[in-house]
Design a protein around this nucleic acid. Structure first.
Lengths: 118, 118
DNA sequence: TTGTTCCATAACCCGATGGTTATGTGAATT
DNA sequence: AATTCACATAACCATCGGGTTATGGAACAA
């Protein structure tokens, strides 16, 4: 893959199916068939998602009889959370106001109106 | 795009260049040229990255003279952090051990079938 | 008006991704 | 030994993503 771990983790989380898989694995290990059941996709598609999750370090796999159990490995999620934590101050409204104040002090000449819409 | 916000946010974070852009914007608004300077890619490539970040809601943009300033919008990161927070218990080593213990209690040996609500 | 600056957009390339159907495979069952 | 179960893998397809070069356009300076 040649991609850093954090990018792989965020990339794995960028898919709703994979996030749902992780959420279900939080309640305990599951087989591929069990994981595939709720989703309207084929079994090979789930196998591909599991491969993505595994190479991101988010699951590990083991055998039980003929089945293969997927197990949640949450440590990489901690790294992702740690990356996000840097911005905790910025999504706090009080700090947002401070940030904007600082921006105004930095560029006193432009009394910019910011239009972020969505 | 037709994709939910959370997937867009995680997808935007899955690229090292975009993460670096966000980190630089944490110190204040920057122009496209300023943002492009540290990276060994062309200006249009940076414009594309900014477009991805904007459609994920992670930046907003405004004009200052002929330049265009990018401004960090951190709220979507909070949603991502909230999603990750569910797993906080799982990446704690003590809880990992507990999790494995529970798993062992759940599957004492060759427990054949798992019952699943659906 | 004419440039110049700063950036967006278009057109293209190519590898990655997410899906499919069809088939192979290893472990358990019979 | 043969079959079945649970899953992986192969082959294929369409779309997406990140990169490029080339060009267009808005805002200012002269």
């Amino acid at each position: 893959m040649q991609v850093d771990q954090l990018s792989q983790v965020f990339g794995a989380l960028a898919d709703p199916t994979r996030r749902a898989i992780l959420m279900r694995l939080a309640d305990g290990d599951l087989t591929v068939a069990d994981l595939a059941a709720p989703f309207p996709v084929s079994q090979p598609a789930i196998s591909k998602h599991l491969k993505v999750l595994e190479s991101a370090g988010l699951i590990s796999r083991t055998r039980r009889a003929t089945a293969r159990l997927s197990h949640l490995e949450a440590e990489p999620l901690r790294d992702a959370a740690k990356w996000l934590a840097r911005y905790q101050a910025y999504w706090d409204a009080r700090y947002d106001q401070l940030d904007e104040l600082l921006a105004r002090l930095q560029h006193p000449e432009d009394d910019a109106e910011r239009k972020d819409d969505r």
